[in-house]
Every structure is written in structure tokens, then in C-alpha cells.
Design a protein around this nucleic acid. Structure first.
Lengths: 374, 374
DNA sequence: CTGAAAGCGCTTACAG
DNA sequence: CTGAAAGCGCTTACAG
């Protein structure tokens, strides 16, 4: 049945005129429409379409007829209605924060992995955006409203108490949580080891005066990276110089500003920069290029993240690879496990509840922005 | 009422023991629970919570009580159930294709704009991923299943006939459609003008031999860019040399491969490259750097897109700015307009149906990868 | 000012 | 092998 295209009403009216549906202006075909036209009960249609023990239950002839009517009418089940009964929407929620300047590349890279794995597992992904983690707790609670089966939080900053409230409401996974969460599944990376690997590589190249352009002070990940930096220095027998650790934002302007301060400082310029993320490194490298300080010959630079842009700088950036896509993918699997365990019909007892904390390894990726101290 | 955190069952059991709910193991608080505890009918709760003419209808005291009980129990309405009645899920769907190698940066940048605008308009965004536009038409039809109010397609490749079928099923907007769609709202950019601006800038710099590393042959956008290239050449009185237009994929490896062919070709090397997107330009610039051909002194390079990475290359890339974020944002607005017009209670007549085709302007962004012919 | 009833489109016991 | 009925959690006429 090929209908002429005019608008969505046409199909409804045609079906009405043919006696298939009871009312005109009905925007979508329902189970009852299919049942009516196939001359059977809605139950039968439902059973056939869901493949539920349908092989045994329904005669081949009826089955055939229903299937052909369904495809003829272009029927597709209403997932909202189905979800109400089955308690499964086959859809996961991703919660991120949106700053005034928009989303960040970091989130998009993780989302990429989430979307890939979700597609593979035949789940849809719904993105919820927040403007502030702490003042919008109510909003977060409302995301558990029957549209999604569970939530993935990307870089959340929760109060511990709120994490508990949330835990009672929905299955969730926290990725790169900025505070340790008492009850939940959290997925992190080994920030300390990353800081160590980056700094250690520089000390092995002979650098002794290594500045660290760190992240914001209250971020646990940023602090772990500093710890790794300190461990590598200590191992190399280098005395810690507090003036070489400069905290700041995780972005390029902040990298620029700190690089300028270092260059303007005259005396005792460092020979290497370990930047707490690639954006900071990029900002710093811009300044170095502008001031005529060649990288890596006069200044080695190491980043952190191995984001999409790391290999596009010139020289390409040596950095710590944090596997964003795999992190996103793994978060989906952890969430799906939880959702499966918490199905309404098979509630878990409190003893079964396990708190999972996974830490992903990181690795050093050597490119062109580093060289031996000259 | 602060409950100890153990797991989701605890809250349900507590409410059961207190006599608030009828069954234990009930995962979420419903309207009836609130009504029961507030000693009113579900209707009243619904009316109060929806703000529907509630001011006049319900006494201040009842209202207060309901509100406080709702917040005490942490009630939030089930959107699936609500959506079934109201026919609005306040959620839009975004459909993209996922290649074996994952999503592309282009999609993520557009998605960024979509998410921003959707958040602003208090809509959620659900991402559906496809692996092939043409073989998965059925799957697309199933996205209109009551979970979303409309769909945005990013770079779709539809059969015209399918677009018509879809049009009868759901409001939708096609962004960067690769074929002209007969019925729908489409949003495009001025590819021809972009090709012209890029090439014209090069001719004005004195370049006469300008290669064009084009996109795939069957893409209408890529072909428009070629047209713009030709128009600029003609205007500058430059005879068209077919060997200088090389089609290929929209990615860096393809840019590399074509740049190598150009350099290996010996005779009559061009002095400028107009690349059909930034990725191609990036691949080409890598080869130029490797072969010791300085940019821009020995070879000017222009890209297309002004993607996030354009300013990270060295030298930063001169390119045509295609406003991805704004495109995504605008697509949301166009879709929301359509959804509003097609509300079930106020069906549009066929005369009201308008086919909208919007074309966004593009502009040249001059950075460091171009200079006058030496 | 408030409640009883019907219904959105499904699924899942339960009958026959 | 198939159907009638109840119910998922809401909203919206319609009564009182």
C-alpha cells in the first residue's frame, strides 16, 4: 500500500476511510489497528510481534497474516507504552555538565565510546545536560523518570550524601568522579601513574628542572597527577621546587598564561613542561612558538589525555594516553550489568549489592614534542 | 525522611512498612503513593504538580500538603506514562551513521550545538545510530516509536521515496542531506560559495595553479564546492586543468595520498591546495612537512569546515568556516517549530504544510597556511 | 474545591 | 490455538 505523500494526516484518513481505524487524525498505527485488520485479538498480535513463546502458541497462518498486516501498515510498537509494562526502555542516560562556553571535547570523546557500545548492545542513548552539579540535584533525580534504565555520569561532582539518594533511585555509573563515592560503580583512570610516567620520561631524558602546569586544586585527578610528578622527581633524586608547580584551569588560555609567566620569570627557566592535559600543553606551545622558544630543542612538552588534537599539533605532542573511548564503552557495560541485576522482577537483596571501583591503566605516547636535555 | 542507604529496595520496604505503599519491592514512587499519603485523589495530585489551572482549582492547604508530601517522598513523574497521554516526550532524536572507525568529529560538533539548544529549550536528546542509511530504513521508522517527538538527521542519504514515508510518520529535519529531499525541512550550507571564497582568495594572492583535493564524487556538497572552485578560476581568467581536481575521501589518509601524488608528479607542481575539508588539508600538510615543502611559502593550503582542529595545526589553517554548532542549534529550532505545528490536538491541514529549505552562509577565515605566490 | 472513571498503547497472567 | 481482562502511571474530560 503506497500512499501519496502529503502530510501525516493523509495516512490516518486513508486508514479511516478503509475502515481500518476507528478515528481519523490518528497519528500512529497501534496494536489494535493491526489486530483489527488481521481479524485477531491484540494479545495475539503482541505475542507474535514479541516472539514470546510465539512459535508454540500461534498457528503459522495467523502468524503470517499478522506479520504481513503489521508490515503493510508500517506498524511499530510504542516504546513508551511497552516500557510501562516491561520496565525496560532499552535506553541509557548520559549526564554531563555544560559550561557557558559549551561542551568540551573531553565529554564528546567519552560520549563517542558510549554511543558505540550502546549501539552494539542495541540501547539508545539519551543525553541530559546540567549547568551545575551541586545546585541541580533535583534535576538529576528527575532524570530517573522512566525514560532511561540507568545513568552514566561523566565527571560528576556529587556530595556523598546525594550519591546515596541517587543509589536508591537508579542504577548508575560515575566516570571520573571528582570525589570518591561511597555507594556506586565508579570508573577512573590511574592519574598518579600517568603523572609519574610523564615526569619519569622527562627525567630519563636528562631534564632536572621540570615545571608542572597542573589542573584545578580541588580536582582529585589533578592532585593525583601532582603526586605522580613528585614520585618521579624523588626517584630521580631531584629536589622539589614548589615554584615549579602551577595550578590553573584545564584549558588552553590557562596554559598560555602560565607559559608566559614562566618565560617572563627570567632566571632558572625550566627545560621541560609537564602539562596536566593536552589543552594546557597546546596553549603553552602557542606561547613558546610566539616567543621563539623551539620545541623540543629548547623546551620539551608533555601533555595528558591523548585527545583527538594531540597528534595535530606541530610538533605532535608527547602525552599520556587516557583511553576515552574505551572508558565510555566500559561504562556502558558496567551500567548494563547493574541494570540487569536490578530488574524489577528480580530484586537484589542488600547483601548482593557490590560497590565496584575500576581503575583504567594509562600509558605514555612518545611523539615529537620531547627530546633529551641539550 | 532520611533513609539509610543500602540499596533501592530499602526505600520501597520502608514505605511499605509505614503503610504508604501497598507493595514492597516497588522500585519507584508513583502518583498514587503521593495521593495516598496526602489523603487526596490522584487527580488532585496530578493537577497540582502540573500547574494546570491549579491556582483556582485546589485549596492552598491541600496544595501545600501535596507539594510537601511529593518532595518528602522524592516523587518524580514517570515520563513514559505522561508521554502516553500528552503525546509529548519533550525529547528529540538525533540520527547519525556510525562507521567501523567510529563517529566522526563533524557529527560531534553538530551534536554539540544540538545538545546546547535542546538543553536551552528543556528538551532531552536521544541519539540513534545507524550503520547504513539505505539498508536500515526500517530501523529509522522504528525510531518514531513514542520516545521522541521528532528527529534530526545528520548527513542523511535517503531515497526520495523514503523521505516521503518518513514525512508521514514524524516531524523531522535533515541537516546536510546528500540528496535534495522533496518533502521536509532541510538545512544546508552554501557549499558553492565556500568553494568560491576559498579559491578566489588564492587567486587574489596571485596563485594560478591551484589543485583541488575534492570530496567523494556522489556527494552533492562536494560537487558544489567544485563548482565554486571553477567559478573562481573562471573569474580570474585561469584555464581549468582537469588533472588538478582530485576526488577522494573526506579524511586525512586520503589527503596524504593525494598530496603524495601531487609531489611525485614532478612537473608543474601547483602552488596552492584547496582541500574540500580540514581533514584532507591536515593529511596533505603532514606530507608537505615530511617532504620539506614549507607552508605557506612554497605551498599555500586552504581547508573547509573550520573544525575544532583547524586552529591547532602548525601553521594554523586558513579555511572556510561552516558553523557546525549554529547549524545544530538551528536544526533544533526548526524541528521544535514543526513539532509544535503537528501537535495531535491541532493537526495541520495539507495546505499548511510548508517545505522549508534553509541555506546557511559560510565565510573565509584567514590564518597562517596561506600567503602570496612567491 | 475535589473525586470517580475512562483511556493512552502496550504486556501478561488467566481462561477457555 | 486464541481471547477477555487487568494493569503499568499518568492526564483529562466530566460529575458532584
Amino acid at each position: 500500500m503506497i500512499l501519496p505523500a502529503i502530510n501525516r494526516l493523509t495516512v490516518a484518513n486513508t486508514l479511516y476511510n478503509e475502515g481500518v481505524t476507528e478515528k481519523p487524525f490518528k497519528s500512529s498505527i497501534t496494536l489494535r489497528d493491526v489486530a483489527a485488520r488481521a481479524g485477531v485479538n491484540a494479545t495475539t498480535v503482541s505475542v507474535v510481534l514479541n516472539g514470546n513463546r510465539s512459535g508454540t502458541r500461534v498457528s503459522a497462518a495467523t502468524r503470517e497474516r499478522i506479520l504481513s498486516v503489521a508490515s503493510e501498515l508500517g506498524y511499530s510498537p510504542n516504546m513508551a507504552a511497552r516500557g510501562m509494562k516491561s520496565r525496560r526502555m532499552n535506553s541509557i542516560g548520559v549526564v554531563d555538565i555544560m559550561h557557558a562556553k559549551g561542551l568540551n571535547l573531553y565529554f564528546l570523546e567519552v560520549l563517542n565510546g558510549i554511543l558505540e557500545k550502546a549501539a552494539e548492545r542495541e540501547q539508545n542513548t539519551t543525553v541530559f545536560t546540567l549547568s551545575n552539579w551541586e545546585t541541580e540535584e533535583d534535576k538529576i533525580l528527575q532524570f530517573c523518570d522512566g525514560r532511561v534504565d540507568g545513568l552514566i555520569f561523566v565527571g560528576p561532582q556529587f556530595r556523598a550524601e546525594f550519591a546515596q539518594t541517587l543509589f536508591r533511585r537508579t542504577p548508575f555509573v560515575a566516570l571520573h568522579s571528582n570525589i570518591p563515592l561511597p555507594v556506586s560503580t565508579t570508573l577512573e583512570i590511574d592519574d598518579e601513574q600517568g603523572g609519574y610516567l610523564a615526569t619519569n620520561y622527562l627525567t630519563e631524558l636528562g631534564h632536572r628542572r621540570i615545571a608542572h602546569l597542573a589542573g584545578p586544586e580541588h580536582f582529585s585527578g589533578a592532585n593525583q597527577r601532582i603526586k605522580g610528578y613528585l614520585r618521579a622527581l624523588e626517584e630521580a633524586g631531584i629536589v622539589y621546587d614548589a615554584s615549579l608547580v602551577m595550578t590553573g584551569e584545564f584549558d588552553a588560555p590557562s596554559g598560555r598564561e602560565r607559559a608566559e609567566r614562566i618565560l617572563d620569570n627570567g632566571a632558572l627557566r625550566p627545560t621541560a613542561l609537564f602539562c596536566a592535559n593536552d589543552q594546557i600543553a597546546f596553549g603553552a606551545m602557542e606561547v613558546l612558538a610566539e616567543r621563539g622558544v623551539p620545541v623540543p630543542s629548547a623546551m620539551s612538552v608533555v601533555g595528558f589525555d591523548d585527545s583527538l588534537t594531540a597528534r595535530m599539533t606541530n610538533p605532535p605532542l608527547t602525552t599520556i594516553c587516557q583511553p576515552f573511548r574505551q572508558l565510555g564503552q566500559h561504562a556502558v557495560e558496567l551500567l548494563l550489568d547493574q541494570i540487569g541485576n536490578n530488574a524489577v522482577n528480580k530484586p537484589v537483596s542488600s547483601e548482593e549489592t557490590t560497590v565496584i571501583r575500576e581503575i583504567f591503566p594509562v600509558e605514555l605516547v612518545v611523539r615529537g614534542s620531547t627530546s633529551a636535555r641539550s
